[in-house]
Write a protein that binds this DNA or RNA. Structure first.
Length: 464
RNA sequence: GGCGGCGUAGCCAAGUGGCCAAGGCGGAGGUCUGCAAAACCUCUAUUCAGCGGUUCGAAUCCGCUCGCCGCCUCCA
């Protein structure tokens, strides 16, 4: 299996530190507001990576943190006149709901920064003791010059970094590029006790501490959005390795951004679409297909129209079996030999740095074969058996990507719609076509559509 | 300015030296059908931003040009 490692800027053969066990840390969100679809993509990408390792038979320990101490959280809390924890808890809850809505599995551990402050203090103390950090007026800074590897991950040249520094120079720092490990808190800000006085941790230190606490001083994969490469991940490496003297994460994986109107989606640009808003209009699996249709390292331009294309593509897979989306139908007995090639191709694609677009291509190829089988299933027993086994295989492979986790939305179908559908069925039975068409129109008005198939009416929610 | 990436059919998107350049959406034709759909089948890039070069052979390697994006500041 090969993965692209940002550290070496090349695809490398993946070999876990402990045979058979993969340890992954993915940077989560800062919980100061609702998460948007850019967060959704990043989270989903690592969800799929994690799922794929399990599919390959690895034991996986997957950690995704919450940053719940941050300037923006404090600002919001002050604006609302509530404690910071109220803001962060609200959005942690929202994040979990959003992730559940789009089928992202919870991580094995989802630690919060505020629950690990004492551990951070300990690490900072050690960095001070070892001469990598210094104290100024209750703040503690990491002295990047003391860590020779600084800049390696992001490919930054230290001199150029200094020249291009756009941050206002803090005269108290020994070097403008030094970053905060600990910030003394002002009145009204959350504070924790420390040898340097009450304060709160800098952003980067939390991930170092939580990653090492849950995964060990060295672990396999550290992931996040590519916008975190510098300075966040660069600083994590410096802090961690300065202390342990050992390699921190061995493979660094970064996902591309979600753009809206050709620009990176971000709060500061005001071009965000929240997950919450998104799922009102689209099926979760349509989003998954949309996201996985582009390789994770590439940027993806968001457009409603493209999600609708994905929704139509999804139909191609789900129409194969009315129950294709039913949970649990993914377990299959024997897969006929002539279908074996699909799984092999699927794995080959995924083994190559999680090439989900190619893996999806395999799924669509399989779907085409099965569609043809279905047409001929009525008259050929062998073909029928192959079709049934093939659909199981399709569902099984789709589930590796996190697709088909829940039954189609008919569960949320209003009783009214159900009643109209039944009435229409009766009208059709007496060949009262006029009444049947009239009922179909009524159902459409309620936001659902009916299609007649050999096995009965198929009701789906109309998307937008 | 520094670093990194991208430019493949109407749209989206794989492919990074050699069978006919995956797959999806859209489109065209056909089969089927109360109707409408859906489904199914077939077709839809002599060509990979442009120009040079290396090679028996390049979308894939090298150089230049043009266009776009990200990071260098909080950011998934």
């Amino acid at each position: 299996m090969k993965v692209y490692n940002t550290l070496t800027r090349s695809k490398e053969e993946f070999v876990p530190l402990t045979p058979g066990h993969v340890r992954i840390y993915a940077c989560g969100v800062t919980v100061y507001d609702l998460s948007h679809i850019g967060h959704a993509r990043s989270t989903m990408v690592f969800d799929v990576i994690q799922r794929y390792f399990r599919f390959k038979g690895y034991r996986v320990t997957f950690v995704r943190n919450f940053t719940d101490v941050d300037d923006r959280i404090i600002r919001r809390a002050n604006a609302e006149g509530v404690p910071a924890t109220e803001v962060s808890e609200r959005y942690i809850q929202a994040f979990r709901e959003d992730m559940a809505a789009i089928g992202v599995a919870p991580a094995d551990a989802e630690p919060k920064a505020t629950e690990h402050v004492p551990d951070m203090v300990v690490l900072i103390e050690r960095l001070v003791a070892k001469g990598f950090a210094y104290t100024v007026d209750g703040d503690v800074y990491f002295e990047i010059r003391r860590f020779p590897g600084y800049g390696r991950l992001s490919g930054k040249n230290l001199d150029e970094l200094l020249a291009g520094a756009r941050v206002e120079v803090d005269e108290r720092k020994r070097d403008p590029r030094d970053f905060a490990l600990w910030k003394s808190s002002k009145p009204g800000e959350p504070a924790w006790p420390s040898p340097w006085g009450p304060g709160r941790p800098g952003w980067h230190i939390e991930c170092s501490v939580m990653a090492m606490k849950y995964l060990g001083e060295s672990f396999d994969i550290h992931g996040g959005g590519e916008d975190l490469i510098f300075p966040h991940h660069e600083c994590e490496i410096a802090q961690s390795e300065a202390d342990t003297g050992r390699p921190f994460a061995r493979y660094w994986l970064h996902n591309g951004m979600v753009n809206l109107r050709a620009e990176k989606m971000s709060k500061s640009l005001g071009n965000v679409l929240t997950i919450r808003e998104f799922v009102k209009r689209h099926e979760p699996d349509a989003f998954r297909l949309f996201v996985l249709g582009t390789h994770y390292r590439h940027p993806v331009d968001f457009a409603e129209e493209r999600v609708r294309d994905s929704a139509r593509a999804l139909e191609r897979l789900t129409r194969l079996a009315p129950d294709a989306q039913a949970r649990g139908s993914g377990t299959s007995g024997g897969v006929p030999e002539e279908l074996g090639g699909f799984r092999a191709r699927f794995e080959a694609a995924m083994d190559d740095d999680f090439n989900t677009p190619q893996a999806l291509g395999v799924l669509f190829d399989l779907a085409r074969t099965l569609a043809d089988d279905r047409e001929r299933a009525a008259t050929d027993r062998h073909v029928r058996e192959r079709f049934v086994a093939g659909v199981s295989e399709l569902v099984a492979l789709g589930q590796v990507l996190g697709l088909f986790q829940r039954a189609r939305e008919t569960a949320g179908m209003p009783a009214e719609v159900l009643r109209l559908v039944e009435e229409r069925g009766q009208a059709r039975a007496r060949r009262d076509w006029m009444r049947a068409d009239q009922l179909r129109d009524e159902i459409e008005r309620l936001g659902w559509s009916v299609e007649d198939t050999p096995s009965g009416p198929r009701i789906t929610r109309k998307s937008v």
